[in-house]
Structures are given as structure tokens and as C-alpha cells.
């Protein structure tokens, strides 16, 4: 589903080269719910960005559903990303002037699909995330937890192969966070592949695999849950 082969990402810092990730080999299977943990600066977000085509490796290869995300043009990468990857961020990233249904439908509207068609799909996703009554609300009329639900619905609009979440509850209280994790867990139970970056062990415990990074490389990869009981 997602595969990294000897993938590295380095940055130029003055005269020095700094590796954010070093020679990572990783295979994520369809239907997995992988949590990526590690101290800040360990390369968690960089790894997520490589998986989702938000960034490209300096060396090595990244494949999503067998398609290479490395060595392709920015335009090709943008198309792959838009059609196959759903992103959820810590700060929701919703457009303030658009309603929930418009925010959710935006990725498809940008693809040129007619609003009438997009609206139906966006509404059904909002229903799926428990916001059937909020479709016409703008972000400033929604709570933090509701905004994140809208962001999750938006991430799902293109039926992505994988849902990537970067500290999705970093900005929410623990009760609201729990509801978001339950929502993600429910989506995973329905088959959605999820990769989530988190520093919170309580969040990681919802997944079925935990990868720990240190200094840009995986140091631990454990399966948890039923199969490991």
C-alpha cells in the first residue's frame, strides 16, 4: 500500500547537511492503523509528508499503491496527492468563509466537478462524521472538535487510499480528542488505512501498529491489538 525503500530526506543548514530521515525502509499494508511516535525532531512529520507526497525524498523511493511518489514532477505529485491521499492537520485548515459542506467538497470542486454532485457526497460524509445538522455552518460557528470532524470529512471526499493525520487532536481537550480517535478508529474498522503522527500514547493505543522514530530512523515497530494479544 505504502512502501518506503531506503528513503532519506536531508536539508541544507548553512554549510552542513542535516538528515531529517535516514534510509527508512517501511511497508504499510492496506487496512492498517499505524501510529508514528517519537520525540520532537525525530522525523515523524517528515516521514508523513513523504508518504503523502507533500515532500519528496532526497534519496530512496516512496510508493503509494504501487505508484512512485519520487522522481516525478510537482504537477504529477499534486494530482496523485489530491486523488489518493487525505490529510488531517492539527489546526484543521478550513477556509473561514465557506460552510462545512463547501469546505468538505472543495477538493472535488477544484477538480471541476459540479457542485450539485459534490454537495451530495459532502453531506453524506458530514453525516458519517456525526455533523448532519451542521452542514451549513461556517468554521467560526463550530467547536474545535466539530471543525476537526469537518476536516476529516474533507480528507475522505476523494476516497483516498490512505488517511494521514498529523497530531489531529493537538489542539483539542482530552474528551473531544477521544471522540476524534473513536471516529478514526471507526473509519479504520470500515477498512480505511490510517497513518497518524502523535506524541500521545493514549492516541497511539487506538491503532494496531506503533512505529517509534529516533533521530530520523525507526527504532521500534510493534504490532498491538488483537493479533498480538
Amino acid at each position: 500500500m505504502i512502501e518506503l525503500r531506503q528513503a532519506s530526506r536531508k536539508y541544507q543548514q548553512g554549510a552542513r547537511e542535516v538528515y531529517a530521515l535516514r534510509q527508512v525502509n517501511l511497508l504499510i499494508n492496506r487496512g492498517e492503523f499505524l501510529s508514528i511516535m517519537g520525540p520532537s525532531g525525530s522525523g515523524k512529520s517528515t516521514l508523513l509528508h513523504l508518504m503523502g507526497g507533500l515532500d519528496q525524498p532526497s534519496e530512496g523511493e516512496v510508493f503509494l499503491d504501487g505508484k512512485p511518489l519520487h522522481g516525478i514532477t510537482d504537477n504529477e505529485l499534486t494530482l496523485l496527492r489530491r486523488r489518493h491521499v487525505g490529510y488531517v492537520f492539527q489546526f484543521f485548515n478550513l477556509l473561514p468563509l465557506l460552510t462545512a459542506v463547501e469546505n468538505v467538497g472543495l477538493p472535488l470542486l477544484l477538480e471541476g466537478l459540479p457542485f450539485s454532485q459534490v454537495k451530495l457526497k459532502a453531506e453524506s460524509l458530514l453525516q458519517k462524521v456525526g455533523l448532519a445538522e451542521r452542514t451549513g455552518h461556517r468554521p467560526d460557528q463550530l467547536s474545535g472538535g466539530e471543525m476537526q470532524r469537518v476536516a476529516i470529512a474533507r480528507a475522505l471526499i476523494a476516497n483516498p487510499a490512505v488517511l494521514l493525520a498529523d497530531e489531529p487532536t493537538g489542539n483539542l481537550d482530552s474528551h473531544t480528542s477521544e471522540e476524534i480517535f473513536l471516529l478514526l478508529k471507526g473509519l479504520n474498522d470500515q477498512g480505511q488505512t490510517i497513518v497518524m503522527v502523535t506524541h500521545d500514547p493514549k492516541a497511539a493505543a487506538y491503532g494496531n501498529r506503533i512505529l517509534t522514530l529516533k533521530d530520523g530512523a525507526p527504532v521500534q515497530d510493534i504490532a498491538i491489538g488483537e493479533q498480538a494479544a
Partner: peptide, 13 residues
């Protein structure tokens, strides 16, 4: 740590 994470996963389930 792995034991605690597994324990947390069981509690979560």
C-alpha cells in the same frame, strides 16, 4: 514501554 503501550491498547479496546 511496549508492555505499557499494549496494556493501553487493551484498555482502549
Amino acid at each position: 514501554k511496549v508492555l505499557y503501550l499494549r496494556h493501553m491498547n487493551r484498555l482502549t479496546q
